[in-house]
Amino acid sequence: MDLKFGIIADNWIFLLSAALLTIKITTFSFLLALIVAFIVGTLRCEKLPEAIEKVLSLYVEVFRGTPLLIQLFFIYYGLPSIGINIPGFLAAIIGLALNSAAYMSEIVRASINSVPVGQQEASFVLGYNRFQSLVYIIYPQAVRVAIPTLMNSFSTMLKESSLVSILAITELTRIGNLIYTRTYRAFEIYLTLGVIYFIMTYAVSLISRKIEKRINKAYVC
């Protein structure tokens, strides 16, 4: 056995900046996904015209029912055929965000539905309109339920972001591939990539546990 971890040390600066890019892509995508998920999840709890309901449920079903890889290919390589050119970085963020938002909107929807109907009724009788009731009464309680699962979505996104390497973005996975084609040290490189991904997701789960503890201290139902 002839392992040479020296190549990792030689390339650490590339790996580090690529890991930071992975975090950047995931964070941007997550924030965009949060916005989309809250809008879609909230709308799907409301009584809406059937056409809008159909469109929203079509969005969720299509993005959950097709592979992320195909979605990324389609956005980056497919859309230019109909005149829509999206740069790689933006395509990666949009693809990741729309895909995760489809799952996260269901988390948001379930969390809103978990708030007892009496809360909505009490606020209505006190004169809150639907919007005020959502913002002041329903969201604060729903978010508390949603946060642990949404943090989990962040970890999932972090790992799935490795797929955007196919859009020629030099994030962590692509840097690993590039170093591999120069050195052919597959074992050392992919083991290192795995370790870096694991450290990042583990950090996320530690942070999420902290946050959970904080919000649980505020009040108990």
């Binding site: 009496g118 009724e121 606020s123 809150y128 005020q132 002041y136 309680q141 508390r144």
Partner: peptide, 22 residues
């Protein structure tokens, strides 16, 4: 079932509707 708002304190339960709606 009372339907108090669990994320508000007792006083906030009374004054928040006054401030938001009233």
């Amino acid at each position: 079932q009372f339907n108090l708002f669990p994320h508000y304190t007792v006083l906030e339960n009374i004054i928040k509707p006054l401030m938001t709606v009233g």
